[in-house]
Design a protein around this nucleic acid. Structure first.
Lengths: 125, 125
DNA sequence: CTAGGACCTGACGTTGACGTCAGAGGCAAG
DNA sequence: CTTGCCTCTGACGTCAACGTCAGGTCCTAG
């Protein structure tokens, strides 16, 4: 498929796809006239890239780990890298959980009429 | 205390503290000569700011929610905002958990000698 | 064969959370 | 009173992941 269709399917911009290629995250073969063509599997690949970006990995890190993820190839370094990222994500989950719980506490206390917040809204009346 | 000490205590840069003030996240009273002075509680406040940044909130969002967090004041809008951020963080935790599990699977499979990755390292021998 | 949408490369613009530098003033020690 | 570190404001630099624009090419429908 062409780049526009891949963009539509995977929900990212055309510019982003070209950027991914530039960063070595996404391959494309070229038509005779030089246009990018992608296999069906490219959509999944783009999804994976987005997932890793969302987990806070940089392009460089993703580029280092992607071959390991989809080809199951790994060197001792890449395995250490994978484990390090896993641990980082774990720590991030823990921090986010604490933050969420803290927000929950704030929400709970701000809902209490006794905390002096609801007279502003006159208890909805 | 002065800005340098607060920076040292809270583990952020002096520049960051001035930036927080600029964004309306952190107040400081001024000495006669115009230097910033902070109360002891400022260190905790900075910690909270960092926590919220780490949870993906922007300066603007933090500025909107901080009065609500520490003064327990809330308007209907701010409560909706709090709930929205809480839900966003929840979703982020879920996504990170999936990503972590996926990485775990990759790590597990890359450790298996059968996956053709360990002959490179000759099984450590 | 032509109109117009999709695609190309190259390059500059954007945004957020600061880093860094310049030039000037404040402050405790000796 | 000077030395030297801290602090001030103001302003430009940075970095990543793209957005956007310019100028040109490709391709398919009519």
């Amino acid at each position: 498929m062409r780049i526009g269709e891949l963009a539509a399917r995977s929900g990212v911009s055309v510019r982003a796809l070209r950027y991914y290629e530039e960063q070595g995250l996404l391959e494309a073969y070229r038509s005779a006239s030089g246009q990018r063509r992608y296999p069906e599997a490219a959509a999944d690949r783009v999804g994976l890239i987005q997932t890793l970006y969302a987990a806070g990995l940089s392009s460089r890190t993703i580029a280092e780990l992607l071959p390991c993820v989809d080809a199951k190839e790994s060197t001792p370094e890449s395995r250490a890298r994978l484990a390090a990222e896993r641990d980082r994500i774990d720590a991030q989950i823990a921090a986010l959980t604490r933050t969420r719980d803290r927000l929950d506490a704030v929400i709970a206390s701000s809902v209490h009429p006794s905390s002096g917040c609801s007279y502003v809204t006159a208890t909805g009346a």
